[in-house]
Amino acid sequence: YFQGQLNAMAHQIQEMFPQVPYHLVLQDLQLTRSVEITTDNILEGRI
């Protein structure tokens, strides 16, 4: 994955969860590489 793709995914998640800091979303995406998994992590309070 290149950074631009991760940034696009992070923006997509931020639209759904504007209360979660962008850098935390991006940090999780770098591990998961998945909008779905990061979204689940937010919903389950891991982020």
Score class of each variant (00 low, 15 high):
residue 33 R to F: 14
residue 44 E to H: 14
residue 37 I to V: 11
residue 29 L to Y: 02
residue 35 V to E: 04
residue 29 L to N: 00
residue 23 H to K: 08
residue 32 T to G: 02
residue 43 L to V: 09
residue 34 S to P: 01
residue 22 Y to I: 08
residue 21 P to C: 09
residue 20 V to L: 09
residue 15 E to N: 10
residue 38 T to I: 01
residue 17 F to M: 03
residue 21 P to D: 07
residue 13 I to N: 00
residue 2 F to N: 15
residue 41 N to D: 01
residue 45 G to F: 06
residue 8 A to H: 10
residue 1 Y to F: 13
residue 30 Q to H: 10
residue 19 Q to W: 15
residue 34 S to Q: 03
residue 16 M to V: 08
residue 21 P to V: 05
residue 31 L to Y: 11
residue 17 F to D: 01
residue 43 L to R: 13
residue 3 Q to K: 11
residue 32 T to P: 00
residue 14 Q to G: 08
residue 37 I to T: 10
residue 14 Q to V: 14
residue 32 T to L: 03
residue 38 T to D: 00
residue 27 Q to R: 11
residue 3 Q to M: 09
residue 7 N to C: 14
residue 38 T to N: 01
residue 11 H to E: 09
residue 36 E to F: 10
residue 33 R to M: 14
residue 12 Q to C: 14
residue 24 L to K: 07
residue 18 P to Q: 05
residue 5 Q to R: 09
residue 22 Y to M: 09
residue 40 D to F: 15
residue 28 D to G: 02
residue 6 L to R: 03
residue 2 F to Q: 11
residue 20 V to Q: 03
residue 29 L to M: 03
residue 44 E to I: 09
residue 12 Q to W: 12
residue 2 F to L: 14
residue 28 D to T: 04
residue 13 I to E: 00
residue 12 Q to R: 14
residue 18 P to N: 04
residue 22 Y to D: 02
residue 38 T to L: 00
residue 44 E to D: 08
residue 41 N to C: 10
residue 28 D to E: 03
residue 16 M to Q: 09
residue 7 N to F: 15
residue 15 E to D: 10
residue 32 T to S: 07
residue 5 Q to V: 13
residue 43 L to P: 00
residue 11 H to Q: 13
residue 31 L to A: 10
residue 45 G to S: 05
residue 41 N to K: 06
residue 40 D to M: 15
residue 1 Y to E: 13
residue 35 V to A: 08
residue 9 M to I: 09
residue 23 H to V: 08
residue 19 Q to R: 10
residue 35 V to N: 03
residue 36 E to Q: 12
residue 7 N to P: 09
residue 47 I to W: 06
residue 26 L to N: 02
residue 18 P to Y: 04
residue 13 I to T: 01
residue 45 G to Y: 05
residue 17 F to A: 01
residue 20 V to N: 02
residue 16 M to F: 07
residue 8 A to L: 12
residue 17 F to E: 00
residue 21 P to I: 06
residue 47 I to C: 05
residue 47 I to T: 03
residue 15 E to L: 15
residue 43 L to N: 07
residue 34 S to D: 07
residue 37 I to Y: 07
residue 38 T to K: 00
residue 47 I to V: 10
residue 4 G to P: 08
residue 13 I to A: 01
residue 39 T to Y: 07
residue 47 I to R: 02
residue 6 L to H: 03
